[in-house]
């Protein structure tokens, strides 16, 4: 094998998610809205990256571009060296509003993803596979319940199970815990890190929670306020893993990073208000 091939592989892994020169405009004429202006971002394979910013700064737009639910007006989005042209199972999304199908049970909602990944496997294999992911989020006891019978935290866990069941290359989390109360959010974050430590998927997460971002991420991307939002700053989180909440409080980096993020967000908020 030549070194060129090895270099190519390394190059691909370093820019596993490759967003370059992306502008996104919505509407036309007078109602035209310039959501994103010149976003460049590279996410390495196995990296956990959070995107943080004020509401309306285009965080979700950026995530939807990687998901393929939107297409960039100019610029390009590529995952694993392939241009994103449509949504696909290699980029599973955990939606903010959980978006479970309310007429299907927990197991059937997860099965939706499994059936798409393994259309040629027999039913028993697919059921076992779905049960495995329901089990992963500790919902086996509720596998046959409808989403309407579940709490907000449980619904979001089903959303996470469904995303993992798609066995994606990139996991896209759109404010996954935004609608949950503080206590549930904490335990969900713990659960997510545990799952992530086991399989180290590439993750892009949208959040507006500074502590959540620091606790979970390798890097935190700060967005400037819209319209024409772009990346203002990228903060590295050099806190060793596996992380625990207690250890985090004693880590010297933690307070520093937290202060830096809050300082930026408050400053940007003042700027937006003025």
């Amino acid at each position: 094998m030549s070194e060129a091939v090895i270099d190519q592989v390394a190059e691909n892994e370093a820019r596993f998610v490759d967003i370059s020169g992306v502008h996104k405009l919505f509407g036309s004429g007078k109602s035209r809205y310039h959501a994103l202006a010149g976003v460049d971002l590279r996410i390495a394979k196995g990296e956990f990256v959070s995107i943080i910013g004020h509401s309306g700064c285009g965080k979700s737009t950026l995530l939807n571009l990687v998901a393929g639910l939107y297409l960039p007006t100019t610029g390009s989005v590529a995952v694993n060296g392939r241009e994103v042209a449509a949504p696909g199972l290699d980029r599973a999304v955990v939606f903010q509003s959980h978006s479970l199908l309310p007429w299907l049970t927990v197991l059937e909602n997860v099965l939706v993803a499994v059936d798409s990944v393994h259309p040629d496997k027999d039913r028993k294999f697919r059921m076992d596979e779905a049960r495995k992911y329901v089990d992963m989020v500790h919902l086996s006891a509720h596998a046959n319940k409808k989403p309407g019978q579940l709490s907000g935290g449980m619904k979001q866990r089903v959303g996470i199970a469904r995303a993992f069941a798609a066995d994606p290359q990139v996991l896209l989390l759109d404010e996954p815990f935004g609608a949950l109360d503080a206590l549930t959010r904490g335990s969900m974050q713990d659960e997510l890190t545990t799952i992530w430590e086991k399989n180290r998927k590439t993750v892009m997460m949208i959040t507006h929670d500074v502590d959540e971002a620091v606790f979970l991420s390798d890097r935190i991307v700060l967005m400037s306020n819209g319209p024409a939002a772009t990346i203002a700053k990228i903060v590295e989180v050099p806190i060793p893993r596996p992380r625990t909440r207690e250890a985090l409080l004693e880590d010297s980096h933690y307070l520093e990073i937290r202060k830096e993020l809050l300082h930026y967000l408050i400053g940007a908020g003042m700027h937006a208000a003025a």
Binding site: L69, L89, A92
Partner: peptide, 9 residues
């Protein structure tokens, strides 16, 4: 639901 259908094929 449309987005779920698109993402999960």
């Amino acid at each position: 639901y449309e987005n779920v259908a698109k993402v999960y094929q």
